[in-house]
C-alpha cells in the first residue's frame, strides 16, 4: 500500500508514493539520487545519514519517509549556494576529514550545532558532535574546522 507524501528537499518540491517502511535515508539516496547522505551503521549510532529536517539535525536512517511528510529537508547537496557553505569551506581548509565517509553527516551536524550555539567551546563542539562517529578518528581537525567555521560565520 503506497502512501502519498510531499516534501521540500533542498528547496525543490517532491511528491512521492512510498511504502510505509521506506526509511528517509533510502528515499533520499535511492529514489531522489541524493547519495551524499551516507548510511554507515544503520543502527542510529554513527550519524553518517544526518540531514536537516525542518531545521533540526536528525538521523535519516531512523525516520520513516512517511514521518517526514510535509517537512523541509536539507541534505549535504543543498548546503552550498553558488559557493561552499562556511562549514564546508572550513572542513576543506582545515582538512576536517580523512576518508570522507562521515563528512556529509558531520557537516550537517555542525551546521545544526552552530545554529543553536554560534560560539561553542572545544568541549561543547566535541559534546555536540557525539552523535557522529569518524572511524578514521580524525576528530582534532574536525573540531578545528568547526572553530574556524564559527569564526567565519560570526564574521
Amino acid at each position: 500500500m503506497g502512501i502519498s507524501i510531499e516534501l521540500e528537499v533542498n528547496g525543490a518540491s517532491v511528491s512521492k508514493e512510498v511504502e510505509p517502511r521506506l526509511l528517509l535515508a533510502h528515499l533520499l539516496r535511492e529514489e531522489l539520487g541524493l547519495t551524499g547522505t551516507k548510511i554507515g551503521c544503520d543502527t542510529s549510532q554513527c550519524g553518517s545519514c544526518t540531514i536537516l529536517l525542518d531545521g533540526q539535525a536528525v538521523k535519516s536512517c531512523t525516520v520513516l519517509a512517511v514521518q517526514a511528510d510535509g517537512g523541509e529537508i536539507t541534505t549535504i547537496e543543498g548546503l552550498a549556494n553558488g559557493e561552499y557553505h562556511p562549514v564546508q569551506q572550513a572542513f576543506w581548509d582545515n582538512h576536517g576529514l580523512q576518508c570522507g565517509f562521515c563528512t556529509p553527516g558531520m557537516i550537517i551536524s555542525c551546521v545544526d550545532l552552530l545554529g543553536t550555539n554560534p560560539q561553542p567551546s572545544e568541549d561543547e563542539i566535541r559534546h555536540g558532535l557525539e552523535g557522529n562517529l569518524c572511524r578514521c578518528t580524525g576528530y582534532h581537525n574536525i573540531v578545528r574546522a568547526v572553530q574556524d567555521a564559527a569564526e567565519t560565520m560570526n564574521g
Binding site: S44, G47, A57, V58, K59, V63, L129, E130, G131, N132
Partner: peptide, 9 residues
Amino acid sequence: IGDRQVRYR
C-alpha cells in the same frame, strides 16, 4: 539521552 540528533526525535 543519546546524542543531539536522537534528542530532536
